[in-house]
């Protein structure tokens, strides 16, 4: 099945049907999506500002990251699941939306970056003044996640 076929199947699934017909379904799932965003945004920001050397300089970046990782991945999971439900409401339309495509590309980049180079930067970061590459990793991570948020907001507008 083509990618477009999967989107149509999602729209025609029981989930899609429920989202399209219920009066408050979309609104409630949107609220869950936003609550997840606040938690994801908070945890990403704290880790990246530590990596930048702006806050919590008394603790190693990897310690901060380990402690926040569950919150970060937990809220990301909530956002992905609620996002799939939101998508099912108008999957056919989203497939062609440039904002949606952009968001998915940025999300994929952000997640891959999080588990690879960003993780390397956290492991290698020592106490004291952050090295150039850890600051670059922090800025790239912040920009990628911010991009996901902005592209996401644009889906409803474009």
């Amino acid at each position: 099945m083509s990618l477009h076929g999967w989107f149509i199947a999602l729209a025609r699934s029981p989930l899609g049907h429920a989202m399209q017909t219920s009066q408050w379904g979309f609104a409630v799932v949107e609220m869950v999506h936003l609550l997840g965003l606040a938690l994801l945004g908070g945890s990403v920001l704290i880790v990246d500002l530590r990596l930048l050397g702006v806050i919590l300089k008394g603790d190693l970046a990897i310690t901060i990251s380990r402690s926040l990782n569950r919150l970060l991945l937990g809220s990301l999971t909530v956002m992905v699941l609620s996002g799939i439900a939101l998508l099912s409401e108008e999957a056919g339309k989203c497939y062609y939306s440039p904002a949606f495509r952009c968001k998915m590309a940025l999300l994929a980049a952000a997640v891959v970056f999080h588990f690879t180079l960003h993780r390397q930067a956290l492991v290698r970061a020592q106490s004291g003044k952050p090295a150039l590459w850890s600051r670059i990793a922090a800025v790239v991570s912040l920009l990628l996640w911010l991009g996901v948020g902005i592209a996401g907001r644009a889906i409803g507008l474009l």
Partner: peptide, 8 residues
């Protein structure tokens, strides 16, 4: 997101 995320 900045406000509530950091407070949370």
């Amino acid at each position: 997101t900045l406000l509530v995320g950091t407070i949370a």
